[in-house]
């Protein structure tokens, strides 16, 4: 009996060791690119070419960050990432606010004011979540041209808002579905109308999903490349397009430290949001998989 228990305990300990070992190994693999990015970005170029890839920098320097931010060339100009970083902020913020606002009211109508056909409308919207954007790029480019928005930031804001509605509506619909209808009925008996119920009761209760929607939209729009590359040009490009251009410029000795610093700059806003509000980010991520 005693030996049985001892062997059981030993087996258990080995099992735990294997589990922790595999998890830490995977964690190391997942952290490696970030580590390489950060260390490379603060090394001197000479050190990099001397063959220090994974090790700590001998001497930390932020020259590469400075270059990436304000001097790096992207083929047309050498102004660094700064103007494009600002572009991305200018386009992301309004697009996030508008798409989230529209999604909130859509979700409210679809769940609390159902009418014949509202489910069909939801189904039509939902497919927009999974639209391969290649299928709409050409007509969108034509339409933006007709609207006089071709190549401009407002044009890109419009595109992101329009194609963001599907996801934000899904978020709010799934959230509002779990709020009992009785709440709306109680408010109706209290004399509140469509707008009053939305503003006074639903929106205050929807704070968590508003955060989820904003974070999701922020990440999606900040990280977008296809729309940015298709609908803007030159000065109006978002940061992802500028980053790709900087990295692909082939003139002289390749400045890997600048490339990594530029990649870090492009990644920082979304990484920051992820670190601060990871819980909400995960909820947005899995929302596409929860029951519709």
């Amino acid at each position: 009996m005693a030996t049985n228990a001892a062997s059981f305990r030993r087996q258990h300990r080995i099992g735990r060791a294997v589990i922790y070992g595999s998890l830490f190994f995977m964690a190391a693999f997942y952290l490696m690119p970030l580590w390489v990015m950060i260390t490379t970005s603060v090394k001197h170029l000479d050190e990099i070419y001397a063959g220090s890839f994974i090790g700590l920098p001998q001497q930390i320097t932020f020259d590469a960050w400075r270059t990436a931010w304000s001097e790096a060339c992207n083929g047309t100009a050498c102004r660094g990432l700064k103007p494009y970083f600002i572009n991305s902020l200018l386009l992301t913020i309004p697009a996030v606010i508008m798409s989230t606002g529209i999604g909130a009211i859509n979700g409210y109508v679809i769940t609390k004011w159902r009418f014949p056909g509202s489910n069909v409308i939801f189904g039509l919207l939902l497919f927009g979540c999974f639209l391969p954007f290649q299928a709409v790029i050409l007509p969108m480019a034509q339409t933006l041209g007709m609207l006089g928005l071709a190549g401009s930031l407002p044009g890109l804001v419009l595109v992101h808002t329009v194609y963001g509605i599907a996801f934000t509506t899904l978020f709010f619909r799934n959230y509002f579905v779990s709020i009992p209808d009785e709440l709306v009925r109680a408010a109706k008996i209290d004399g509140a109308g469509f707008i009053r119920i939305f503003v006074s009761i639903m929106l205050p209760a929807a704070l968590p999903i508003i955060v989820v929607s904003c974070i999701w939209q922020f990440t999606q729009i900040w990280n977008d490349y296809l729309f940015g590359a298709s609908f803007t040009a030159g000065e109006n490009a978002p940061i992802t397009v500028a980053l790709n251009n900087i990295v692909n410029v082939s003139m002289g000795r390749k400045e890997y430290n600048v490339d990594m610093a530029a990649a870090m700059i492009a990644a920082l806003p979304t990484l920051f949001v992820y670190v601060v509000a990871g819980r909400y980010f995960v909820r947005g991520l899995t929302a596409g998989a929860v029951k519709g």
Binding site: Y225, L243, A267, V273, Y274, V282
Partner: peptide
């Protein structure tokens, strides 16, 4: 999960 927060370009 953090890679999901990054742009594919990064």
């Amino acid at each position: 999960l953090y890679p999901m927060a990054l742009s594919f370009i990064v």
